[in-house]
Write a protein that binds this DNA or RNA. Structure first.
Lengths: 120, 120
DNA sequence: TCATCATTTGAGCAATTATTCAACCATTGA
DNA sequence: TCAATGGTTGAATAATTGCTCAAATGATGA
């Protein structure tokens, strides 16, 4: 693997320059984890539901039409990736989006899809 | 699954409102596919390398330190998700980011990580 | 204290995914 | 036409993931 294009010397320069643009491993994995968390229909349902109000685990399960357990697992992922935060009130745990960046991103992404791709 | 929180009527209202914020199935899947494509270290390496210059498959393989075949598979995913486009020149295929939105998003994401999470 | 409800957790399983390998296609130049 | 190079593709496989189920935790009120 990773064999280099044979012919031209210019490849070497392009490769070196390209490599410089790639963030270091740690940052790269963080960004990947972040986008990966958003790249799942169930988690997106949770997140869009949370744009505009805080909701408890059980509400989210009802909205996503999945078991409370399944939602709790997904909420853990979103918490670990620092995309949502929570507050406990009695027996309930209320979740919310962690900051305005997330709200904006979800909104922009939806617009981008609408404009960029009429069907697929 | 999907059993509803028993006690209060207010849950019903919150659930209904939350449900209204969730995009329809098709849009949701599109957004998920989009973020999912970005949520992988190999594909992110490719994308960050492409911020600033077009590169051929073989250059990208060298940068990502993976086989040409592995990179080609990932490039296909990025093409299908309309994140990159390409141009053929002789035996080479040169890839580039499809629009400025992608460039911006990659840059913003990196900044967001840097500010939001000092280590984990 | 006990029963109940909301939530979390861990094991298990089926489905998905990232990579490799081998074969193939496409372009070039001899 | 043939050999060489760049790239794509499909099958196979190991690793990861998303869900379910059962069991556990935590808070509340009787």
């Amino acid at each position: 693997m990773t064999e280099i294009c044979r012919e031209h010397e210019e490849h070497r320069d392009r490769i070196a320059a390209g490599r410089r643009r790639v963030p270091d491993r740690e940052a790269l994995l963080e960004v990947a984890d972040f986008f990966d968390a958003l790249g799942n229909p169930t988690r997106l349902k949770i997140l869009y539901a949370l744009t505009g109000a805080e909701l408890c685990t059980c509400d989210l399960a009802s909205i996503a039409e999945l078991s409370v357990s399944a939602i709790s697992h997904q909420l853990r992922i979103l918490r670990d990736r620092k995309i949502i935060s929570f507050r406990k009130e009695g027996k309930n745990v209320f979740y919310r989006l962690r900051d305005q960046h997330i709200v904006d991103l979800l909104s922009v992404a939806l617009e981008h899809m609408a404009e960029g791709a009429p069907h697929g």
